[in-house]
Computed example of a mutant assay.
Amino acid sequence: MSNNNASRESEISLAELRGDCARMAPHWVAPAKSAPAPVAPSLIHGVTVPPASARLIDAMSDYGD
């Protein structure tokens, strides 16, 4: 990289960077999302939850009811 390019790169504004990204976005291909395979609870080992965290989650209506 030449010194001139280095100074130009340091002068790029956020707006220019966002514009560059917006122009490139249609060319990017995102891989198809795949759902993670479920894991049987019997295969989960070594996970510990502190009692205070367990009580907090238990007290939340989304999880405890």
Rank of each mutant, 00 (worst) to 15 (best):
M1S: 09
S2L: 09
N3E: 15
N3A: 15
N5T: 14
S7V: 15
R8Q: 13
R8P: 00
E9H: 12
S10L: 15
S10K: 14
E11D: 10
S13R: 08
L14H: 12
L14A: 14
A15S: 14
A15K: 10
E16A: 11
E16W: 02
E16M: 08
E16G: 08
R18I: 09
R18V: 05
R18A: 13
G19C: 02
C21Y: 14
A22Y: 07
A22P: 02
R23P: 01
M24I: 15
P26W: 03
P26N: 09
P26L: 07
H27G: 07
H27P: 00
W28T: 09
V29F: 06
P31N: 07
A32W: 01
K33I: 11
K33C: 01
K33S: 04
A35L: 08
A35I: 08
P36G: 04
P36S: 06
P38G: 04
V39R: 12
V39P: 02
P41R: 04
S42R: 09
S42H: 05
L43H: 04
I44C: 04
I44P: 02
H45D: 08
G46M: 01
G46N: 02
G46T: 03
V47K: 03
V47E: 03
V47W: 03
T48S: 08
T48Q: 07
T48R: 07
V49Y: 00
P50T: 00
P50C: 01
P50H: 01
P50S: 02
P51M: 00
A52E: 08
S53A: 10
R55Q: 10
R55S: 08
I57K: 09
I57R: 09
A59C: 01
M60A: 13
S61G: 08
S61Y: 08
S61W: 05
D62G: 15
Y63S: 11
G64D: 07
G64H: 05
G64K: 04
D65M: 12
